[in-house]
């Protein structure tokens, strides 16, 4: 039971942190709960599918199918996150002021919402497929009862969800006008970490050069396997001993996202409407 608790918590923690950031980043958007739940549901189905085809994926492309697949998922998520930060840097300020004026869950941001729901789905799928393989293995070898295994898994899942919720609530303590700047920054780091990881995975499969197997090694301070190391890995792409190409991809993705966000023209917040008349005028224009 403890084994399934730990592995589910460990794998789902990473996805849970992504969900926590995404929840904060979509605060106030209409329909976001449904979109995120849809992302999680899609991710769970995807995870079962990936686990079911694990042997096909493993044997594809001369045995590096798994790495190509993982890198593909990561890079798709990077693209979605880049889209979101660019969109947010254009609409974020307006959005924040609208949410303040008209209340939460009333503002539209469909495209950005879709992109982030997809990121949630991809994160759940990637982490979840390992959980499925692991739990299936336990169920098949049945050293312990299936009931205890599911109980452990469920507790692990609840704990991961609790961390996710705590991160979300913590971020909400940030005043509304700053919230999206903070989440945008976190999402940029999240994307950079994923880009670095994609490069590391591809270099690990000998698909691209590694440019140095390990540029430095900080595992004596913060090992990758520690809880803090894992959390920072998920949040900002921490890696105790990164390869050269991993660092390069990290910096390149970060630079690209910052540049795109800077280049995007900022949409000014709507002036506060003084009278009902002015409000109808704005509505008529829109």
């Amino acid at each position: 039971m403890l084994a399934s608790l730990l592995i589910v918590f460990r794998e789902m923690l990473e996805a849970g942190l992504v969900v926590g950031i995404v929840m904060a980043a979509t605060e106030g958007l209409a329909g976001r709960t449904l979109a995120i739940l849809g992302g999680i549901g899609g991710g769970v189905s995807g995870a079962a599918l990936v686990a079911g085809f694990a042997d096909v994926i493993a044997e594809a492309a001369e045995g590096v199918g798994q790495e190509l697949f993982t890198a593909g998922i990561l890079l798709a998520a990077v693209a979605m996150l880049t889209f979101h930060t660019t969109w947010m840097s254009r609409h974020g300020r307006k959005l924040a002021s609208e949410i303040k004026d008209f209340g939460r869950a009333a503002v539209k941001g469909d495209k950005s919402l879709f992109a982030l729901a997809a990121v949630v789905g991809l994160a759940v799928m990637r982490e979840g497929s390992e959980v499925v393989l692991f739990l299936y293995g336990i169920a098949a070898s049945s050293h312990e009862s299936v009931g205890a295994m599911f109980a452990g898994g469920l507790i692990g899942l609840v704990l991961a969800a609790a961390v996710s919720y705590a991160l979300y609530r913590g971020l909400l303590a940030i005043p509304m006008r700053h919230l999206f700047s903070v989440t945008n920054g976190m999402i940029a780091l999240l994307a950079a970490g994923m880009a670095g990881q994609a490069a590391a995975v591809l270099a690990g499969a000998d698909v691209i050069p590694s440019w140095g197997e390990r540029l430095w090694n900080t595992s004596f301070i913060l090992p990758d396997g520690s809880w803090l190391g894992r959390a920072l890995h998920a949040l900002i792409g921490y890696s105790a001993a990164p390869s050269g190409v991993q660092v390069a991809a990290y910096l390149a993705a970060l630079a690209l996202i910052v540049a795109l966000a800077r280049l995007a023209p900022d949409e000014k917040p709507k002036p506060k409407t003084a009278s009902p008349l002015a409000e109808t005028k704005v509505a008529a224009q829109g």
């Binding site: 042997d55 590096v64 798994q66 299936y136």
Partner: peptide, 23 residues
């Protein structure tokens, strides 16, 4: 049943499906 070869020091993690051999 499936296993995952993993090493922090080597920076690798890779699923090995049952009955398969992977590089």
């Amino acid at each position: 049943t499936a296993e995952e070869f993993e090493s922090f020091q080597l920076n690798r993690e890779k699923v090995v499906p049952p009955g398969k051999e992977i590089p």
